[in-house]
Amino acid sequence: MQFLQQLVNGITIGAFYALVALGYTMVYGVLKLINFAHGDLFMWGAYLGLTGLTVALAALGYTTPWAILPVVIFVMTSVALMGVLVERIAYRPLRSAGRLAPVISALGVAFILESLARNVYGASWKTYPQGLTPSGGLVLAGGVRVSLMQIIVLVASFLLMAGLYLFVHRTRVGTAMRAVSLDHDVSRLMGVDVDRIIMIVFLIGPGLGGVAGLIVALYYGSFDFTLGWIFGLKAFIAAILGGIGNIPGAMLGGMLLGIIETLGAGYMSPQWKDVIAYIILILILIFRPTGLLGERVAEKL
C-alpha cells in the first residue's frame, strides 16, 4: 500500500516537472539554447495568477471554480508575451554569437525575473485564496488515496502535452518548427520565416510554463519567489533525462524524476533523495548520453 501511495505522490510531482520541462525542450529544439529563464517565467505564472485571481474574485465576486478560467487565459497570454519579449531583447541579438553568449544572457534574464518578482510582490510567502480548488478524492483498494486535484493536474498536463505533440506533428506551423529545429538556413531557403517560427515557440513554451505555474500554485496553495529556481532546475534535468528537444521525452523524464525522487524520499529519507535521483541520472546519461528518447533526431520536437 505504501508503495502505491508513494507512486501516486511521485506521479503528481512528475507531472509538474514534465509540464515545466516542455518549455525547455521546445526552445532547445529550435534554438539549441537552454533557456534558463524558463523556470522564472513559470514562477511569474504563479504570481500573475495570484493577481488575476485577486482581481477576479474582488471585481466579479465569483464563488465558483469557474473564476479560474479567465485567469488561466490572462496568465497564459501575459507570460507568453513576456517570453516573446525576452527572446526579442535578450536572445535574438545574440543569435549569431555562438552558443555561450545566449546561455549567459538567459541566466541574466532568470536573475532579473526573480528579483523583479521579489521586488514587485515582496519576499514573503504568498497564499492563494482558499476554497477555489475542489477537495475530496478517491480511496482506492488498500487505502491508496488519489485526490480530485491530483486527477485534475494529471489530466490537464496530459491534455496540454498531447495537444502540443499533435500541434507540432500535424499542423503546418508544427512542420515548420520541426524544419527549423533541423536547420535554420535550409528552412529559410524553403520559404520558412524562421524568426516568426521562433516567436511562436516563445509564445507557446512560456505560455504553457505560465499555466504550469498557476497549476502548481493552485495545487500547493502557497509559494515564494524561489519557486522558479527549484522547479526550473528539476524540470531542466527532466528534459535532459528524457532527451532534450523531444516532447514525449520531457514527459517521460519528468515522470521518472518525480517517481525516483519520491521513492528515494519515502524509502530512505528526504535528505538522501537528491543523491539517489542524481546517481540514477548520471548512470542513465553515461549509457544514453542523448537521454532516454533523444536519439531520433529527425523527429525531434
Partner: peptide
C-alpha cells in the same frame, strides 16, 4: 514544496 513522500 511537496512533502507527500515523507508524510506517507
Amino acid at each position: 514544496t511537496d512533502f507527500t513522500p515523507i508524510l506517507t
